[in-house]
C-alpha cells in the first residue's frame, strides 16, 4: 500500500498517536518514508516565551495553516538551550485545551447562569459601570482639604501574565481613573 507524505501527516495531525507502521509493512525503506514525515516539517516557526516562571524560556511554536501544531524549547536561546520543564513542555495542550473560554460571558445580578455576549455589548456596559462608579464615588478632596482625586471604591487586581506593554497601559488607565487599590502577583 502506498502512502503519501501528506496522507501520513493527516494521520498524525489528527492526534492518532500510535506509530502505525503496519500499513507501511516492515520494509525499512518505507519505515524511512515514515520517519521523514516529521509533523513539523515545513511549518512556520514562531518564537514565543513560556508563560510560567520568570526564567522566561524561549519556545518555538510550529504553525501550519494558522494552527499551532507543536511547541518545543528554542535550542538557540542561551538560557534554556531548548530545555523546558513539565509546564513549559505542555504549552501545546495548554493553548488548545477544551476548557478555554471562547466568548465574553455575562452573569446578571442574582442570576444562576452565564450568558454569552459580544465584545461591544460588554465593553459599553463595563464603561458605564466604571463611569457611574467614578462619578458617584471619586474623592476630590480629603478631610484636610487637599486635592486627592482618588477613587477608593474601585480596584484593579492583576496580572503578571500581562506583557510589559499591557502593564504600562493598564497602569496609565487606572491612574487616569483615580484607582489606588491596585495590586497583583508581585505581592503574593
Amino acid at each position: 500500500m502506498s502512502y503519501t507524505r501528506r496522507g501520513f501527516l493527516k494521520l498524525t495531525g489528527a492526534g492518532v498517536a500510535c506509530l502505525s507502521l503496519s500499513q507501511l509493512g516492515f520494509d525499512l525503506t518505507e519505515a524511512r518514508a515514515y520517519a521523514t514525515s516529521l509533523k513539523t516539517k515545513g511549518a512556520k516557526e514562531v518564537i514565543t516565551i513560556c508563560p510560567f516562571c520568570s526564567v522566561s524560556c524561549h519556545i518555538i511554536a510550529h504553525v501550519r495553516d494558522g494552527k499551532l501544531i507543536s511547541t518545543e524549547g528554542d535550542p538557540d536561546f542561551p538560557i534554556n538551550e531548548g530545555a523546558l520543564c513539565a509546564k513549559g513542555a505542555a504549552l501545546l495542550s495548554m493553548s488548545r485545551n477544551e476548557h478555554r473560554i471562547k466568548k465574553p460571558l455575562y452573569r446578571a445580578p442574582y442570576s444562576e447562569k452565564w450568558e454569552e455576549k459580544d465584545w461591544d455589548w460588554v465593553l459599553s456596559k463595563i464603561a458605564r459601570r466604571v463611569k457611574d462608579t467614578r462619578d458617584k464615588e471619586l474623592i476630590e478632596k480629603n478631610d484636610k482639604g487637599q486635592t486627592v482625586n482618588r477613587l477608593d471604591s474601585m480596584f484593579l487586581l492583576g496580572t503578571s501574565h500581562a506583557s510589559n506593554e499591557e502593564c504600562a497601559l493598564i497602569h496609565q488607565a487606572m491612574r487616569g481613573l483615580g484607582v489606588v487599590h491596585m495590586d497583583h502577583q508581585a505581592r503574593i
Binding site: A162, I170, A186
Partner: peptide, 18 residues
C-alpha cells in the same frame, strides 16, 4: 530573587501596584 511569575519582573517594573 527568583521572581515568582511569568512576567512578574516586568509587571513590577511597569507597576501594577498601588
Amino acid at each position: 530573587a527568583l521572581r515568582g511569575e511569568p512576567n512578574v519582573q516586568g509587571s513590577t517594573d511597569h507597576t501594577l501596584l498601588y
